[in-house]
Simulated scan of single mutants.
Amino acid sequence: MAKRDFYDILGVTRSSTADEIKKAYRKLAIKFHPDKNPGDNAAEDKFKEAAEAYEVLSSPEKKQRYDQYGHSGNSPQGGGGGHMNMDDIFSQFGDIFGSGGSPFDSFFGGGGGQQGGSRRMSRGSNLRIKVKLTLDEIAKGAEKKIKVNKLIVCRTCDGTGAKDKSSVQTCKTCGGSGAVRRVTNTILGQMQTSATCPTCNGAGTQITSKCDSCHGEGVIRGEETISINIPAGVSEGMQLSMGGKGNAAPNGGIPGDLIILIEEIPHESLQREGNNVVYDLHISFIDAALGASVEVPTIDGKAKIKIEPGTQGGKILRLKGKGVPEVNSYHRGDQLVYINIWTPKAISKDEKEMLEKLQASPNFRPQPGKNERSFFERMKEYFE
């Protein structure tokens, strides 16, 4: 059977806005929701059909492919999405109806549409730590082993919270499902909903005798050494996340994440500007006039650069590829060498006399249109 046009299904047009498409889907989702139409296969088919249409038309990329190629543009062969199951559909509801996941949660406080219910899994809290890195570590990447004080799984009970295996029993209220179902009469008709079991709080089990170490929580305070692989190119203030390395969750739940905040340790002579590295080079006016070969520090060690005769203060020399790499990229910034002319604060009597002779020369001061090279050559001959 050929698929119906997605715009016709939702009752919108190609020019409809994202909000109009969203409102149209909300209306159909409430009308054909399985909880409002128990046992009605036709309503369930329309519910799935509306969800599939919204899944495509709510995505700018998928909508563009659909407008250009029709249903084939978002088929699995065409690079788009495939058939949606009920879990996929209900996962949309966090965006459409809020965090509850169903348009009927506001009426009953339960997980509407979750067929058969599910056990509620607790989740551990996230941890946040700071890691200080040198410029060399930032440029090359680093592996850091950090001791973290956090909640860990209780070793005595393996996180169950029970004194022994016989102390863990299936919840009699929900039969181990973690949820209870109920039928309620509302203005929309008879609704069947699922709610968290009030006896076991969604765990599906009850503990008759608690663990002496964790007192039934399944977690204790402890220390764990975590190896953190930091990619090259990170920067001050950047946050990295390691899933499951945060605080352990009570009763075998899902552990939280570890959030790593990057701090840069200032380099003694190099400064970072984005992916570039800046170095202030101070040379004498004699080296600037006659030219010289000098060594400058880089992330990779010392590098020799050539100062051309007649170099002016403020000139910038660029060392290609001597900067910091971009995160997850082969591209690397440059090192910029800023030329500064250094002037001595104290000079000897003989040095002063030589400089006074040079000062008397008409070529000593800049003259627009004149060849400054002739002055540098004469100064070189003077000092030789």
Rank of each mutant, 00 (worst) to 15 (best):
Q312Y: 04
I305M: 06
Y25K: 11
L290S: 11
T173N: 12
H282L: 12
L240A: 02
G244E: 08
H33R: 00
A142C: 00
R332M: 01
N149I: 03
R318C: 02
I259C: 04
G243Q: 13
I146E: 02
V296D: 07
G333L: 07
I307P: 04
G81K: 08
P368E: 10
D19R: 15
Q92K: 12
H331N: 12
A360T: 06
D19A: 15
P76C: 04
C157A: 00
K147M: 05
Q335E: 13
I230V: 03
M354Q: 09
R65Y: 13
C211A: 13
G94W: 12
V327L: 11
G222Y: 09
K48I: 15
G246Y: 07
L270C: 07
M354T: 02
A142W: 01
P362G: 09
D334F: 13
S75G: 15
L28R: 10
T134R: 07
P38Q: 05
S72K: 14
M84P: 03
S102H: 05
G73M: 06
G313N: 04
V56W: 01
E223M: 12
I226P: 08
K210E: 04
T184F: 14
E326F: 10
D40Y: 11
I220M: 04
R182V: 13
G243Y: 08
G82N: 09
T156K: 01
G73I: 06
M379W: 00
V219E: 00
S106Y: 14
H33A: 05
V277W: 02
G369V: 09
P255Y: 04
K22Q: 09
A24Q: 13
A18M: 14
M1H: 07
S194Q: 08
G81M: 11
A360C: 02
A179P: 03
Y279T: 09
D35C: 14
R4S: 08
S213Y: 05
Q206S: 11
V148L: 06
E236A: 13
P325L: 02
G79P: 00
N275K: 01
V168A: 07
K302H: 05
Y66Q: 04
R221G: 05
A53C: 04
Q206I: 12
N363G: 06
R119P: 04
G218Y: 05
S72P: 04
E356Y: 11
Q239E: 11
G204Y: 07
D300G: 07
E372D: 06
G73K: 09
R119E: 09
F32V: 09
E143K: 09
E52N: 10
A346W: 06
